[in-house]
């Protein structure tokens, strides 16, 4: 326990640490807000949280610092990442504003609120810092434990009840009751035959010499991409890569190079033209 913690000012080391890490934390927070992809936002937030954990430790809250890293960064943020994976990248990730004036209002409110908070803190007479030295004399965890199990025991119990309720609630919310028996493969194929569309299995995604991925649509005979070849999830997310023009582009480049080298003009390939139009 460093005696500086009880002082009005902190040690130079802590000051240095604060200024460096505070910058990191603010940058992380800004990245959380402004990163286009939610995965990046989540990672930035995790970084900010780790910085905060360090600040907790510096402020003498050892238990909280560890809990911050283990529970928050380790568990909760990972939960976020799982959900991001489940939900995937959506059009909502776009930073383009759709509500008129929302951005300006938000900015105005944010700045106003921040200024007011700063003014409030600046006005408050926060001269005395007792430091946590005495409180942590018997160890931070022991101190917390004695408080939790004496003074805050009811709040603690109720929090336990809250956690259980939340767990049950999450299960209820995400649970989907299956009201009928899952259909077997045989039944599904019989249904396909009966309906008469797509009797064969769905076409596979495009497999080319240079591309072999599930997000690339296979091309129809006329060169247009077929959306059927891409899985439904990717289709809904709008994550289809269209490579139909690539081959033609390559061909064009090849012809141009050949033209340059052979110094003659190529015959206009009418067949390509049609497929170009179609691919548009």
């Amino acid at each position: 326990m460093s005696p500086q913690l009880a002082a009005y000012t902190t040690s130079t080391g802590e000051a240095f640490q604060f200024w460096v890490l505070a910058t990191v934390a603010v940058i992380g927070a800004l990245c959380t807000v402004f990163m286009k992809k939610s995965v990046h936002s989540a990672l930035s937030l995790a970084g900010t949280m780790i910085v905060l954990a360090v600040f907790y430790l510096a402020n003498g809250a050892y238990f909280l610092g560890i809990v911050q890293i283990v529970v928050y960064t380790g568990a909760i943020m990972m939960l976020f990442l799982f959900v991001v994976m489940l939900v995937g990248v959506t059009a909502a990730d776009s930073l383009k504003e759709t509500i008129k004036g929302q951005r300006w209002l938000a900015l105005l409110c944010g700045i106003g609120f921040g200024v007011l908070l700063f003014a409030g803190i600046g006005n408050a007479s926060l001269k005395e810092f007792d430091g946590t030295g005495r409180a942590n004399a018997n160890g931070n965890v022991e101190g917390l434990a004695s408080l939790i199990f004496t003074k805050y025991v009811f709040a603690f119990e109720i929090t336990g009840a809250l956690l259980i309720t939340a767990a049950v609630g999450a299960m209820v919310l995400t649970h989907r009751e299956r009201t009928e028996r899952a259909r077997t493969q045989r039944e599904l194929s019989e249904q396909r035959i009966r309906e008469g569309k797509h009797v064969p299995p769905l076409p596979a995604p495009g497999v080319y010499a240079r591309h072999n991925a599930v997000d690339i649509a296979g091309l129809l005979p006329d060169g247009t991409p077929s959306e059927l070849t891409v899985s439904k999830t990717l289709r809904e997310r709008g994550q289809i890569r269209d490579v139909s023009a690539e081959a033609l582009g390559d061909l064009k480049a090849l012809e141009q190079r050949a033209e340059e080298r052979l110094e003659r003009t190529a015959i206009e390939p009418t067949t390509f033209k049609r497929s170009e139009e179609a691919s548009k």
Binding site: L105, A106, C109, G110, G112, F113, L116, A119, G120
Partner: peptide
């Protein structure tokens, strides 16, 4: 949020 800001302002 605006309301909260107003509340803070009123408190101050």
């Amino acid at each position: 949020f605006g309301g909260a800001a107003l509340l803070v302002a009123a408190t101050l």
